[in-house]
Structure formats: C-alpha cells, structure tokens
Write a protein that binds this DNA or RNA. Structure first.
Length: 303
DNA sequence: ACGTTATCCTGGTGGC
DNA sequence: TGCCACCAGGATAACG
C-alpha cells in the first residue's frame, strides 16, 4: 500500500519521535508476515539506542546501536567482538501502517493485526511503561515484514542489493532512467513499477507521473525519446515531492503514525478516477489492466 | 533473459 | 440480511 511518499512520511515521524531513545521492551504479538519475524529480535535490540531512521525504496531502516557500555560477559570469539550495530528493516507491504504513541497517550489495548510493539524511552533506569514512546507495526494482509540485519551487511542484503536508484537522488535523471530501460519491451508503466529500474514508485505515483509527463502508460519503455524520458524523470520527482509535502496519499485505511491522513488524495489527477473527466481536457479518464495492475490515464493528454 | 501471471493474505464494497 | 465475486498502495516464484 504505501509507496515512497507514505514511507517517507512514516520515516520522518519515527525519527522525530524515537531518535535517541533507548529500547526498553519489544513484543512480537504476531510473527506471521511475509517472512516470520525472528524470535530473537527482542533480545537483540532491547537495551539498544535508536540512532536514526532511514528509508531505502519502500523499506524503513531503523539504526540501533548494540547494547554498549555495560556488557555483562566478555565476547568469546572474534566474531562476537565485532560491534553489532543492528538495522531493523520494516516493510509495509500493501496494508501495513505504523502507529506511534507519545508518552502518556497509550492505547487502551493492542489492536487487531498488530505484529510488533516497541517501547522506548529516555533512559534505562526509569522503566515504567507510562514514560515510554510506543511504536506499533500493524498489517492486516501481512504482505509486509520486519527483519533484523547487521548494519555492516546492509549493502549486500538480498532485499536491498538489487534495488534501482532513488528517484529523488541527485544522480537520478533522464540519462539514468534511459540506461535502466534501454531495450526493454515492457510498458513504461510496468518499468516504473520495477524496483530494479527505479525504486520506491508504486501504482499510484506511476500513473500520476505518466499523466504529468503526458506519456501513455502503454508506450514501450525502450522506445521513448530521450527528451520525453527527461520530462518523465522530472514529473516523477515533482509528484513524489508534492506527495511527501502533503503527507502522502490516504486511500481506504492508510494513516500517518499519529493517525493523521495524507492529503495528496485531493491532488490526484488520474488514479482512481476512471470515468471522471480529465482536469486538463475533460475527456473521461480510462482504466486499463497492465501486468495485473490497474493503470489510469487520459487518452487525450497522454500519448 | 524477459515479460506476464499466479500467489501470498484480510477486509471492504457492490450486485443479486 | 446474507452470500459471493471482485478489488486493493507490493513483491516474487513460476511459467511461457
């Protein structure tokens, strides 16, 4: 469900409210997700400090230091002596969301489809639950997941290794996209959804960016002029930036960590607007199915 | 190698 | 009201 702008919105909230806090308690309330949440996750990160929260594509990466300072036992082998700085990797799949409760604003009880709950606070000694900030990962469909990876291994991690460029990165431009889709026979819409071509774009923003660029989703990816691909990269960046500024797109149930909705839904030009008129030319918006996903476009404005 | 389809899940909606 | 088919913001194994 959440694409780059929604994940980025979650990242910001997480960093604002959790950075610098020490993890006091971790509960796996339902380990069944895309991959089972590892049983030893709580023991590995409890006592660690949240150093920051990053985003790569649609993955959240929570940097957690090892429990430093007062290690009880000495490491027995070389492997154990290495610093174990962890990276808690979260993915929200189609229906995942994160809720963050500030101290003394706690929920009465866990909710349906909560999978992972983390309590974190200012210091280790003051450990009554009321002073903790609580982060909850909820995911009804369980297409998302939570994994723990060593920070030093993150670049080689199978989930992150093959990802394409970040669309908002300075180095991502028309030339970069051109190279990534050279010779590809698939549609430009499918190419934008391919996380190895460019990462973080999902079904909403692929349709919106193609509308803004005036390119039909049916165009063969490898057969579009350099100039139009340049326009497309600009449109992708613009759509993503505006969506982040609006707090993402809230369809159905998606909300930000504090329960706020994202307002970009009001700015959508084509997604979910089948049969409604184009904001530019009044032609009815069409919906087609490409690679099993819905695409929305204006048959007049997009060629 | 590449492109498309099937599949993993739950929940909401709309038709009958 | 119930029942059922179909749809959904993603990723990937399996298939042609």
């Amino acid at each position: 469900m959440p694409e780059l702008p929604e994940v980025e919105t979650v990242r910001t909230a997480m960093e604002n409210q959790m950075q610098g806090l020490l993890i006091r308690k971790v509960i796996i309330s339902d380990k069944r997700m895309r991959w089972p949440i590892p049983e030893n996750l709580p023991e590995r990160i409890t006592g660690g400090v949240i150093m920051g929260v990053r985003r790569r594509a649609k993955y959240l990466l929570i940097d957690i230091t090892s429990k430093s300072g007062n290690r009880q036992e000495q490491p027995k082998d070389e492997e154990a002596k290495k610093t174990k700085d962890w990276c808690l990797l979260l993915h929200l799949g189609m229906s995942g969301s994160v809720r963050i409760y500030p101290p003394d604003h706690h929920p009465p009880q866990p909710q349906k489809h909560d999978h992972l709950i983390i309590w974190a606070g200012q210091d280790q000694n003051h450990d009554h639950a009321g002073a903790s900030t609580i982060m909850v990962l909820n995911d009804p469909r369980r297409f998302g997941g939570a994994q723990l990876i060593l920070r030093q291994d993150q670049d080689q991690h199978p989930l992150l290794r093959t990802l394409g460029a970040e669309p908002l990165g300075n180095q991502w431009n028309g030339a970069a996209l051109m190279t990534a889709i050279k010779g590809r026979k698939t549609s430009i819409k499918a190419a934008l959804l391919d996380q190895q071509v460019v990462s973080g774009i999902g079904n909403i923003y692929a349709s919106e960016a193609l509308y803004q660029a005036g390119i039909s989703p049916k165009r063969q990816a490898g057969n579009i002029s350099t100039a139009r691909i340049e326009t497309l990269t600009g449109a992708v960046k613009d759509v993503l930036r505006r969506a982040i500024a609006a707090g993402g797109t809230s369809l159905r149930d998606h909300v930000q960590p504090g329960g706020e909705i994202g307002y970009f839904v009001q700015k959508l030009h084509v997604y979910g607007r089948e049969g409604e008129t184009c904001h530019q030319c009044k032609t009815p918006i069409k919906m087609i199915r490409q690679s099993g996903r819905s695409s929305f476009y204006c048959p007049q404005c997009q060629r």
